[in-house]
Design a binder for these strands. Sequence first.
DNA 1: TTGTACGCGTTATCAA
DNA 2: TTGATAACGCGTACAA
Lengths: 348, 348
Amino acid sequence: MPPVTAGVKARSRRGGGRPTIADVASKAGVGAITVSRALREPERVSPRLRRQIMAVVDELGYVPDRNARALASARADVIGVLVPSLTNNVFADVVRGIYEGLDQNHLQVQIGNTHYSQEAEEELLQTFLSQRPSALIVSGIDQSPAATALLERADCPVVQIMETGPDPVDMMIGFSHYEGGRAATRHLIEAGYRRVAFIGARMDPRSERRLAGYRAAMEEAGLFDERLVTTTVRPSSVTTGSELFREALAKAPALDAAFCNNDDMALGALFECHRQGRAVPSEIGIAGFNDLEMMQIAYPSLTSLRTYRYEMGRRAIAMALEAIAGRRPAEPVVDLGFELIVRESTRR
Amino acid sequence: MPPVTAGVKARSRRGGGRPTIADVASKAGVGAITVSRALREPERVSPRLRRQIMAVVDELGYVPDRNARALASARADVIGVLVPSLTNNVFADVVRGIYEGLDQNHLQVQIGNTHYSQEAEEELLQTFLSQRPSALIVSGIDQSPAATALLERADCPVVQIMETGPDPVDMMIGFSHYEGGRAATRHLIEAGYRRVAFIGARMDPRSERRLAGYRAAMEEAGLFDERLVTTTVRPSSVTTGSELFREALAKAPALDAAFCNNDDMALGALFECHRQGRAVPSEIGIAGFNDLEMMQIAYPSLTSLRTYRYEMGRRAIAMALEAIAGRRPAEPVVDLGFELIVRESTRR
DNA sequence: TTGTACGCGTTATCAA
DNA sequence: TTGATAACGCGTACAA
């Protein structure tokens, strides 16, 4: 009993009547598997059949069913990406790099927002894993033990991004936030500032390491003072930057510079200086972290530590694609480094 | 030949040995379909069996295979979202609303970046559709005819976001960019500014409508002048804002206010005023569009037209979920409106 | 280079 | 309330 009468689809199908590979095959007078190959590995099908098949594909408007494909191959054409925030410009840039690194690839990206929560990360990992993704990209190196176990058992490539550290689950690309914090602070000290404050919002593990770098630099110079550090668990924003800078001034009225957790915070500190009539950089020096686009055009322009977020996304995907193709990347752990961009806000 | 020896999984499986619903079923002494129901519609299974099944699920660590589920039910637990940009804060907020509106739902979000290109949108639509998504959310109302056709044939709910207009494909939530542009411009005129410039980057269809609103307001007041309009196809950014403001000044040296395409542009214009020593708001008035967080804390604080982006994402998802559940939302077309937030930058 | 037979893990259908 | 059976549409393994 032929389930399909050539050309006339049996509309009783559950799927709603979309043409299937069998429809294409019968109409093109070939086997289904040949159609499958013509679409996925054209070079393995003779040019004649290939053309024939493609013509029918166009005519019928056939589009392969990704779900069936995923089931049959035990692999979804999806790359799962876990980030702690979507509004943070930093992750927006990374995500953009990921999408653009994928380019014409047939893979899709699925983004999960962990909201800086390890539990949420575990749950998302479970969900993502239940799709058998082609690869997984996760942020940071502070996964919970359970999450780490899930990642290690995941039979797909895993890339940790945003930061480097010991014990990569699989592959890793990022930079040292500790060294970044240290370099920025050293610069402020070398520029002649002495009472350099640290201002940090949403102290996630990476910010904590920036703070550790700040502390190291200050201690090396014999300048460290607890009262110069002001942090909050609130999310970072320009407004939070202004507020925290005010707090910092209250705690340490003599401060002469601020190393900010990130650029939004730095911009907030700058606005607060304007508002209070404190001159930047002569009275107060300001440095940010990440070097968002606005830093260069702010007035005065703002010193920041440039990080390669877009590049990180692109290379993370490139590494994942390599691994998916079965090739082990030459360097499974990549340190992208950073660059201090000195601008008006710290030049006295 | 029993494929599964109770408790001892046949490791020859392609899937890599993950427990399947059959494993759970045999161990719990029930049929596979009962396990399936216990997971999806617990109330349809007797409490006794339900407990029994859940115990085995936990014991085995069974997680349903989403791909198999998608194939069998002809529906992937995925909502496709098409946005023109990922770096633009505006879309970041909408996307955040979408994720948070989904909350504990089992659905996943898949985001496609159209890069403001109709062709890219068509391709992404094809890709998304090949998964049989549970719903589709697309940005704007300017889809190509082909894309519109795809959306109309898609057998899933479709929500158009970001703007309202005639002829919704299915559902729609947004606001009128034309009225927004008109309202902001009127405010500047009422505040006493006469030579109000329009500064716009990346003139996508929505920005064009903001410009149309600007023009209408200016013409109503008898103040319209071509030379007051400066636009570019370049993407918007703080830097572009500074540059375009400079261009605008070159073309119309006597301009006394700028209505900017969006808030990044407004901030750029503000910095340029600082740099040139032009007082805001006394010499130059500045207004933005969207009311990003930084506008309230900038110095001087910046007037902007507040739009409800997060809310838009949340409600778009709510509408989609309603439709997925088979209920037609009471209002398939929602105008969220906007609110002009007047601040220092336009108070002379 | 092409095709056959089968399995992937789940849900829809229908009957008990 | 529960279950047997048959899809779902494709890719893998192997053979021709």
